[in-house]
Design a protein around this nucleic acid. Sequence first.
DNA 1: GGGGCATGCAACTTCAGGGTTGCTTTTTGA
DNA 2: TCAAAAAGCAACCCTGAAGTTGCATGCCCC
Lengths: 113, 113
Amino acid sequence: MSRGSAGAAGLARAGPVFAALGEKTRLALVARLCARGPQSIARLTTGSDVTRQAITKHLHVLAGAGLVHDVRHGRERIWELDAEGLDHARRWLDQISKRWDEALDRLKKFVEE
Amino acid sequence: MSRGSAGAAGLARAGPVFAALGEKTRLALVARLCARGPQSIARLTTGSDVTRQAITKHLHVLAGAGLVHDVRHGRERIWELDAEGLDHARRWLDQISKRWDEALDRLKKFVEE
DNA sequence: GGGGCATGCAACTTCAGGGTTGCTTTTTGA
DNA sequence: TCAAAAAGCAACCCTGAAGTTGCATGCCCC
């Protein structure tokens, strides 16, 4: 497994990303940051059905997965999306589905012989 | 948000997929099914550090997310990948990262004016 | 300087999910 | 026919994550 993000190393990095996205509040946060741009914690909390502290925790989980990052701005903390983390997860899915398609092709050809 | 898989509906469908992939045992199962092809439960269990029942539960979670499906074959139950579920998650990530890139471009042009 | 807004920190509660054990059912093949 | 393999079912434990409450801190602006 010398290269490619579908190997053991890529798997270890992809895990936290999927885990971060696999929670409805966090997924909604990502979608919201994408749709409405960078926002403060207080603004991200309005309209949500959980507490500001809950939002804060979720943002840190997303940051740990490399999906968002924050910038201090006066007394506010502005959070915005981080495209790199998203790309990594996408590449992992690309690898898997591509390899699976190839495997299906091989099987099909084998059956047809 | 009238179309596209990044809207509320796409978000609702993408959630379970990411949640399913966001667990190391399940992610390893997907990688294994991709690398070694369809396998029975017993075979998927060998080499794993958890019980057969745990593997069974995980397979059902993956099936619920549309990532795998099973075929009865005698006294065995063969599980294999389901490319459609993978593609759905990938398209969701595509939408998000594409829209984010566009937003960054708009911001860049705005700043340069 | 000080009131008020935005956020940070820490302790606590709750519960879903990951895992196990023990037993039963189905199916194979000799 | 029957023993063993493969899987299903159900009850149970237990950790961690999601969420809350209460209070402390930092920063802007009048």
